[in-house]
Amino acid sequence: MLLFLLRRAFSSIVVMFCVVSLAFVLIRSIKGGPFEREKTPAHIVAAMEAKYQLNGSLWQQYLAYLGRLAHFDLGPSTKYRDWQVSEILAQKLPNSIAIGSVAFLLASTLGVLIGSFAAMHKDQAADRVAMLAALMAISLPTFITGPALIAIFSLWLGWLPVGGWGTAQQMILPAICLSGPYIAYIARLMRNSLLDVLKSDFLRTARAKGLSETAAVVRHAAKIAILPVITYLGPLAAHLLTGSMIIESVFNISGAGSVFVNSIQNRDVFLLGGAVIVLCAMLVLFNLIVDLLYTVLDKRIKLHG
């Protein structure tokens, strides 16, 4: 177990290193640096680049950046000059985490429930309607469903506020909109997985000893059938908690998703690097939790390094 954790820690550092390097090299090799867009004279650009350690060859810049990262310093933002990257992230991330965790809870619980229900009523009307709705939810982009939800619930019925941030009511529509496709995806995953498990021998035994179908599913099948869903939940959590650009722009929320877009548009190297690191760290963390959950749910699975 300890060996597993150590190995995992090592491989996650390697992965994060690769991804950050890729992002840094790519963004620095794009024509137009962070200071060149404002029609500033060349000597000022050079001075700014020197100040931010973005001068010299790409290799030197990269080493300087890695050196700073090794001291747990994400560096300053080249666009918002008075701000450190860590300060910007600390300001934007909590909003995204709040909305993301609500969406995550919605997606995982509703998805599993709908999927199980559909599997237990395979090929009946309820199953077909649920799967049709699921495919529609997967196919429709959030920038169509978002405005449609606003039009119906805010403008037409007047039940919920149009946008903004702060109250619980303002979180309902964005959370539904954000989780919709994932509810659908998890429902499909759960349905297919449960259908497979329902065919297995230990469930025939459970039914033979007189358990009702619902009890058999709840007590025996669900635990195994949920494993593929759990695998999917790891990356999903990381993805949801780091913010969605579309949801933020549609519902007018200031979150981390816009940080990504703006950092690329502004060639804000260090902000992009910091955002990529946070995303990768979340991904690594949640994948680790997934692996640990596996051993709890299925005793046959052993973790070895």
Binding site: V19, L22, A23, L26, P235, F260, V261, I264, L279
Partner: peptide, 14 residues
């Protein structure tokens, strides 16, 4: 494990 949309955006810029 690379954020997909992010890299598409960087590639577009590049």
């Amino acid at each position: 494990s690379v954020p997909r949309i992010l890299f598409i955006m960087i590639l577009i810029a590049a």
